[in-house]
Amino acid sequence: MFRTTAVRAQSIFRNALTPKKAQAATVSRFMSSHSTETDEQFDTRFENFFNRKDIDGWEIRRGINDLWGHDLVPEPKILIAALKACRRVNDFALAVRLLEAVKDKCGPKVDEIYPYIIQEIKPTLTELGISTPEELGFDKPELHLESVFHIH
């Protein structure tokens, strides 16, 4: 009885137990490695990402969320590419949200960095007809939302 079970189990686990030589050659080593990408390459990579002609809303959002995981304020040229991508997919709200997020990303240096970025991307904003959050009145809290912890 037990023998039957053992034999069957052995046949099932055989593949897992025998080392796979073919894979061993291609397996990557899990070692820490530092990125050798320079800042210029990083900027160009994201600029090219947003400049793709066939980009869709999903990819724009993914690109922005990825970019926001880095400890940096994106260069104006990346933002210009992203804003134009928003224009191509006809999503105005995304463009305004992006500008708001940039302002938030400036952190404590918002008074230094944000005006510079707006100054750099102003031609694009005018060209595409994008309003800054300030023009829409989004720089101050506009609506109050009751906390979900206080509703009931």
């Binding site: 224009r87 709200a93 708001e100 007809g129 309003s131 829409l136 989004f138 506009e142 609506l143």
Partner: peptide, 30 residues
């Protein structure tokens, strides 16, 4: 929205934003 964004009024722009997003950064970070 598919047309020129310069033709959108401020109210329409805000309505578009509120259709996609609940709170602005200023609101949820208040």
């Amino acid at each position: 929205e598919k047309g020129d964004w310069k033709n959108l009024s401020v109210e329409e722009k805000k309505a578009l934003y509120r259709a996609s997003f609940c709170q602005t950064f200023a609101e949820f970070k208040a």
